[in-house]
Amino acid sequence: MRNKFKFYKLSNIENFNYKALLIIWIQYILFDRFTELSNLNVSLIHKRGAVRLIPIDIIFNDFISTSFLYILKLLVLVLLIFNLINNNKNSLYVLITLVYFYELIKKGFGGHLDHRILTLYIFTIIVTMSLNNDFSNSKQAFSFAYLFFFLQYFFIGTARLFSGFPEIFLDDTFKNWILQRSLRPNFFNLQFGLKISEYINLEYLNIIFFSSTLIEVLAIGCIFYSKKYVKYICTLLILFHIGIYLFMAVNFIENIFLLIIFIRSINKDLLDEKIYYFR
């Protein structure tokens, strides 16, 4: 009985990250107002990826039917809940395929591809493809996914440094971005950005901007260095994400969840402290 209990406990611990990942997806899909897209003319869709091959405008007459959007959303939710109960790799692949089209329909009505869900999506793809069929190597699968996760922060930071150093950290570019984002409509109509750019000196704003860029570059160290380093860098990244939401209205809640899971995993030994190391 004692052994059985221990085994039960262990299997739960090992699967915790995987289940948490599914819950992040569930909250995203559940609160997503996906069916609103049935009000937009189908000719507004800019086709991307595999959707280029699908004659959406011929399949749907003027508007994508609400029932189609409901069914797609429901299917994704059902698959997520199914995977929450059972560990099944094939259904995870089906889920990834459905989400691919789900996201491309949404992004078809938008402009550029933003990173909010791209990160979570690629993260999930990497976890899925690197998991064994019996899900026995959760630790390893998540170590690959987190390699990508911190790599994307590193990419974002280096892209900013190479494209704009030192000018954008000295002039009023950052202040203008804050103003512009506050001027544009956002979900809660937050306008803290207008206030902050009014009351905080340009120099201080630029110091914050430059520091956050350095933290993004240093984020890659989270997969190489000790617990202490991880805690500081991940906490700062979480704070920056909260700041970006308050002052620029860009939501990165899924990244915050992934960062929290990472800190927890390192503390609870769900991920090795130094998976990757310098030889």
Partner: peptide
């Protein structure tokens, strides 16, 4: 941005 929050704010803004 609330009505079509599903598109995502940055993507909607660039459109």
């Amino acid at each position: 941005s609330k009505v079509y929050s599903t598109i995502g704010l940055p993507s909607l803004s660039s459109r």
